[in-house]
Design a protein around this nucleic acid. Structure first.
Length: 485
DNA sequence: TGAAATGTTGGGGCG
DNA sequence: ACGCCCCAACATTTC
């Protein structure tokens, strides 16, 4: 009677209840445990995410090996491979950590069908939530639709946050399951991923990044030591590097939110950290939790507005405009800086994410799903739940969304959050000699551009749209839609 | 996790 | 010295 621990985004060797359950059962019943990641190239989040995935798989495999264990990486169509594993290794039980969003929900559904057919027990664990989404509801027993009440309720009932035991037991037990000769390839990285990380861009970006559980904890410690106190005041300024940078590690489960919560709690109780500094950061962690709960309750929001009346919104899908946005050639510096940061690093500062999303949907009137899918493909920390919530929030039709007339002015935001143009100069070297005043909206400083030998339309694009006009048009579109419905 | 319009205040230039 | 204008800087209101 063997157990399969199916890993999706839980790339760690500690604090993993699914693995712990499998190992302790195996110890009692002398069964065997197989730990496997299934890579189905048709069920992935995106390219950059796949790169992070590849490095993470290699690291997790190394971590398992160091503990005397074994991690399998199975490549192929998920249902059939799961079938095969169950049959070839006499699996009687599959355990996994429940995840929301595409591709996880589809795969979990397939796993359910396979296991049902094979008469195998399938057991989910909810360790990737602070509290299981299905159990955390408001007084009307409905999902929270506004962040602040959600956050307040969670903090008030923090005893509901699941403590997770650090020890998972003897990982060495996973080595007892001997792989058949034809499956020895499962001990190395799937071919598709192998090919991907051999690409120059992937190598170049990842050479300065270390993934994995140990690195995640190291980053957290560094952040708490160096940057926690200034987080609240600095986090909105893209040039300040004031954030923890933990989001890809969190998404891959290299570090776990509940574990972080109790760790911070203990540091506060021992007087090492002040809650006034901890809470603002914790609040951001809870945003991720909120997004996961929302997507679990409303899976349709991956493709359709949460606020139904926005279904009738008319969107363009203009390939050229979308491309200009993707390539950072819109002529609006803060937008282009963000999009180039994304392309060159697989990351973008959170405030700038909001600005580029607002600009694409509201000023350029391009479909929000075009933007979301670009983020899915280019962000290392692409997360189905966060991505859906973020785009819907910005576009104005998600839960807790800003009213439609709350529309970012990228120039105002640029002045406010990058007043000295440091972020702009980092990503737009062609503009670096412009003054702090002119760099946010060079098209309004033609004389200075001429003096600095910057020809708009050649060295740097003319603005793709007039900000004032496109804003007015957006307001008009929404007003029209509202009267129509 | 707004922006624009409108209102208010106060300093400086200037006749 | 004074009123007047301009406008920046900030505050309030409205969408």
């Amino acid at each position: 009677m063997n157990t399969l621990v199916w890993i999706q985004r839980e790339f760690r060797t500690t604090a993993l209840p699914a693995l712990q359950a499998a190992l302790s059962e195996a110890e009692k019943s002398s069964g065997k445990v197989m730990v496997a990641y299934f890579h189905d190239e048709n069920q992935v989040i995106g390219e950059a995410n796949n790169v992070w995935l590849s490095y993470s798989l290699l690291q997790l495999k190394a971590d398992f090996t160091a503990l005397g264990g074994q991690l399998c990486m199975v490549e192929g169509e998920f249902s059939s491979m799961l079938n095969q594993v169950i049959a070839d290794y006499q699996i009687s039980k599959v355990v996994y950590s429940f995840q929301v969003g595409t591709p996880f929900e589809q795969m979990q559904q397939q796993a359910l069908e396979v296991c049902k057919h094979k008469k195998v027990v399938l057991q989910p664990f909810y360790s990737e939530f602070l509290v299981p989404a299905g159990e955390f509801l408001n007084k009307q027993h409905k999902p929270y639709l506004v962040f602040t009440p959600f956050y307040n309720a969670l903090m008030k009932q923090s005893h509901l946050i699941q403590p997770i035991e650090e020890s998972v037991g003897d990982i060495g037990l996973t080595l007892k399951l001997k792989l058949k000769d034809k499956h020895q390839t499962w001990l190395s990285l799937p071919m598709n991923l192998q090919n991907l990380i051999a690409l120059p861009w992937a190598k170049k970006i990842m050479q300065s990044t270390q993934v994995g559980e140990q690195q995640a904890w190291h980053k957290l410690q560094q952040f708490l030591k160096d940057d926690l106190e200034t987080y609240q005041t600095d986090r909105d300024f893209p040039s300040l590097l004031a954030t923890s940078g933990l989001s890809p590690y969190l998404n891959f489960g290299q570090i776990n939110s509940s574990v972080i919560y109790y760790y911070l709690q203990s540091l506060m109780e021992e007087g090492h950290l002040k809650s006034e500094y901890v809470m603002p950061w914790l609040r951001q962690l809870v945003w991720k939790e909120f997004a996961r709960h929302l997507l679990m309750h409303f899976p349709d929001t991956e493709n359709a507005p949460f606020q139904a009346k926005y279904q009738s919104m008319h969107w363009q899908m203009d390939e050229q405009i979308i491309q200009a946005w993707q390539q950072g050639k819109t002529g609006i510096p803060i937008i282009d800086a963000g999009m180039r940061e994304l392309w060159q690093t697989g990351n973008m500062h959170n405030r700038v994410r909001m600005l580029v999303a607002s600009f694409l949907t509201k000023n350029l009137n391009q479909h929000w799903l075009a933007g979301k899918s670009w983020f899915d493909n280019t962000l290392f920390d692409a997360d189905p739940a966060n991505n859906v919530m973020g785009w819907q929030w910005v576009a104005g039709f998600g839960v807790d969304a800003a009213p439609y007339y709350r529309l970012f002015n990228p120039v105002t935001q640029s002045v406010k959050f990058d007043g000295k143009g440091e972020y702009l100069r980092q990503w737009l070297p062609e503009l670096k000699h412009l003054s702090n005043k002119a760099i946010h909206n060079p098209w309004e400083y033609t004389e200075e551009c001429r003096l600095k030998s910057i020809e708009l339309g050649k060295d740097y694009p003319q603005p793709l749209v007039d900000l004032k006009q496109s804003r007015a048009q957006h307001l008009e579109r929404v007003a029209l839609m509202k009267t129509a419905s």
